[in-house]
Computed example of a mutant assay.
Amino acid sequence: MAPTSASEDSLPVLKILLIGPSGAGKSALLLRYCEDQFDPESTTATIGIDFKMKKLAVRGKGYRLNIFDTAGQERFRTLSTSYYRGAHGVILVYDISNKKSFASMEKWVDEARLNANPEAVLYFVGTKLDKVAAGGRAVSFEEGKAFAEAQGAAGFCEVSSKTRENVKRPFVEVVDQIVQKPQLIAGAAPSAKAVNFDMGSLPSNPCSC
Rank of each mutant, 00 (worst) to 15 (best):
Y63V: 08
K145I: 00
A87F: 04
F68D: 03
L65M: 06
Q151Y: 07
E106F: 00
K128P: 01
V159G: 03
G72Q: 05
L65C: 07
R137P: 00
K131N: 07
A71I: 07
Y63K: 10
G86F: 08
K61M: 03
E106H: 13
D69H: 11
Y83C: 11
A133G: 05
A148P: 02
K107Y: 04
L65F: 07
T70E: 02
A134P: 00
M105T: 11
F68V: 05
E111P: 01
D95T: 10
S160P: 02
A150C: 09
V125P: 02
S101D: 06
E143D: 15
G86S: 11
P118C: 13
V121F: 02
A148V: 07
E143K: 12
L122Q: 12
K131D: 02
V167T: 12
G135R: 12
G86L: 10
E111M: 12
N66D: 12
A120Q: 09
A103Q: 13
T81L: 01
K128R: 12
Y94P: 04
A146P: 01
E143G: 05
E106I: 09
E142F: 03
A146G: 03
V132E: 12
K145M: 11
K61Q: 15
G152N: 11
L79A: 13
T81N: 13
E143Q: 15
R75F: 03
H88T: 11
N66T: 13
P118H: 09
V139C: 06
R75E: 12
R164V: 14
S104N: 10
G144E: 08
N115T: 07
D110Q: 15
F68C: 09
F141S: 09
I96H: 03
I96P: 00
R85I: 13
V159K: 03
Q151E: 15
N117I: 09
E142D: 13
M105S: 03
S80E: 03
K100D: 13
Y94S: 11
K99N: 00
R113F: 01
G144R: 12
K107E: 12
R64G: 11
S161C: 10
K162R: 15
G62S: 13
T163I: 06
D95K: 05
E165H: 11
N98M: 03
E149L: 09
S160I: 09
Y63N: 06
L79Y: 05
F68S: 07
A87E: 09
N115A: 10
F147I: 05
I91Y: 05
E142Y: 02
E158Y: 00
A134L: 11
S97M: 03
F102I: 07
G86C: 12
E111V: 05
A87V: 10
E165C: 02
N98P: 00
D69L: 06
R77A: 14
L129C: 03
A138N: 06
L114T: 15
E111H: 08
F147K: 15
G72M: 04
G155S: 06
G72E: 05
N117P: 03
Q151L: 02
L129G: 08
A154W: 01
G89K: 10
D110W: 01
L114E: 15
S101V: 04
F156P: 01
A153Q: 05
A87M: 08
R164S: 14
V139W: 06
T78F: 07
S140V: 07
L65N: 07
K131E: 04
K61H: 11
E158T: 06
G72P: 01
Q73R: 12
